[in-house]
Design a protein around this nucleic acid. Structure first.
Lengths: 329, 329
DNA sequence: AAACCTTCTGGAACCGATTCCAACAGTGGC
DNA sequence: GCCACTGTTGGAATCGGTTCCAGAAGGTTT
């Protein structure tokens, strides 16, 4: 059996309360006592029971990280950063993968609520109202999504789109396709809005291709439709779709970028490895994870201050081999 | 404030104990009482506090998943499966990423011990003794590693190597390089041992190239050394190194597979996307995650039975474009 | 020397569930 | 009509910490 606070108290010849104070609030206890307690604790290898502590303090020391699909290569970078930063605040990370199912998102959140001090929620599918209600119960930082003025960390994808379109325009492209992601995805709606307004502003014609599941297969499946649209470039909702397009084009003997240029979003690690390497809008994933934890910790320490706690991270177009001068039509 | 068991008891006009029983052991309570309790609970939206439950039962309902690097594309598939299967057993997953640091592995485990009922440990770097000691304290299933006869889920990489080498031999390769991974990695030692014995058995000459960090950069860096070794094929410790080799060869104008064949391990999603696609030994990652959870649950329910609880998962060579007939030398 | 203050300490309540034990009612057997 | 038994219930202890409160010990001020 592991040593409890009682064992330490007995060995040190003091009361439980003193042990507790010696460890938690060292300046409230006489140095001599403190020393005895520390020695006893060390001797027994005492580690406070976090569960018991949680029960009395109401704090669990856990944060919940909810995301739609850890197998999506966008997330591991975020998760890693969250994990590392959380550890620095002595917080453990409870992971929940919702399999892109909005009902599962809510259910998992409800289940975990009592076990965590706060949430980092990356729930692209859940409705705003549902998310608001969660945020009312528990401290929440939204990741890669904005919900009203609630705390969030998101990416400036409008600017990323601006960079991408400016890049294509500079290469002489006048008519561009956009492959939309899942209709229910917040990011998809956001990107769609941006792309329309930027395209108008830059006087570029945009053809929207149907909503596609954001996987390789989705990209492959939509390749024909893009080719039929007689565009010289295509912007994909994310890199997985972009890679699928590359693969689909390749299978049909269409040359990238000579015949058509491709731009993706997220800049996942694989983007730079394929041939031609995929031009993509980079999202600073590590910074996202770090910032999200920091915001949440701030929220945990101070229940107010929510107003100002939104962070918009910069995006950056990474130009690679999949984009080139517009093909003559 | 959230409703507690007392609130439910008051509303239903029964004692706490009855509420508890009505919810946990319905057959020990009269149907009428049970009904009243259920109604009261529903009316208040009562959810038992898991922390409090943990304190009295000694069970947390959490399992700890420790792994070296979630950004390694091998892991997301495993994590996802773990997560899903754990949820089916009503277990939450605490994730810890150790950043490939053996000291961190141990420290994180110690920290989490009180918060979890058991561990899934993917600790390639920690020593056998340390892991044994952890296993003495808490139920543990080792993932992608075997430690004595302790419960584990691992891959039959010896057979994978056999398949890879047979494939190369059939293509006429006689002299093959092996790029080793981190010296301290258990999997690396395992693969090295297998490759030596298989090579001897099949009368193939194997040149071992230095230990390399298992990343793209590691693979790129070792490309020159491989070219200097005058081999017709190279087997990489894992796909990241394999992809690095492809990239390095490509940069030097070496043609794959005409000039040299490349085989990787893990069959990460990217392997099939590059050009040429990478031949790789597939590890069934989802099955690994599922089996690991099942083994752990079994272990939690029955403290004995450890002896027989080791699972060896089959591997399978996926032949793609990066391997071809041996170049004439 | 008395009054007062500060610093330190121990006892006990508390967090919210689970579970052991005793008490009780109702049933059936004799 | 009494006893034993089963089925149901409430009271209270328990898990292992944290924290409030009261009191002891020691020092300072008048």
């Amino acid at each position: 059996m592991a040593a409890t606070i009682k064992d330490v108290a007995r060995l040190a010849g003091v009361s439980q309360s003193s042990v507790c104070r010696a460890l938690a609030a060292p300046d409230q206890v006489r140095p001599a006592t403190r020393e005895r307690v520390h020695q006893a604790a060390a001797q027994l290898g005492y580690r406070p029971n976090r569960v018991a502590r949680s029960l009395s303090t109401g704090r669990t020391g856990n944060i919940g990280l909810v995301l739609p699909d850890i197998a999506n290569p966008f997330f591991p970078g975020v998760v890693k950063a969250v994990q590392r930063r959380a550890r620095e605040f002595d917080l453990a990370v409870l992971l929940a993968d919702t399999d892109e199912d909005p009902a599962a998102e809510l259910e998992l959140i409800r289940t975990m609520t009592k076990q965590v001090d706060g949430f980092l929620l990356c729930c692209p599918r859940a409705s705003d109202e549902d998310l608001r209600s969660v945020s009312g119960d528990t401290p929440v930082v939204f990741v890669n999504r904005r919900v009203g003025h609630l705390p969030s960390v998101s990416f400036d994808s409008a600017d990323g789109i601006r960079q991408a379109i400016a890049h294509l325009a500079a290469l002489g492209h006048r008519r561009v396709a956009y492959v939309a992601g899942p209709r229910s995805s917040w990011v998809n709606r956001e990107r769609l809005r941006s792309i329309r307004s930027v395209a108008t502003a830059m006087d570029l014609e945009v053809v929207e291709a149907g909503n596609v599941i954001p996987t390789l297969e989705g990209g492959i499946a939509v390749a024909d439709q893009i080719l039929a649209a007689s565009v010289t470039a295509v912007i994909a909702f994310n890199d997985m779709i972009g890679l699928g397009l590359l693969s689909g084009f390749n299978a049909r003997g269409v040359n990238v970028p000579a015949d058509i240029s491709v731009v993706g979003f997220d800049n996942i690690p694989t983007a730079g490895l394929v041939n031609p390497p995929l031009t993509s809008v980079d999202m600073p994933k590590e910074q996202c994870g770090r910032s999200a934890v920091e915001l949440l910790v701030q929220l945990l320490n101070d229940r107010e201050g929510r107003a100002s706690s939104r962070r918009l991270l910069p995006t950056q177009l990474i130009v690679r081999g999949s984009t080139g001068p517009a093909a003559r039509t």
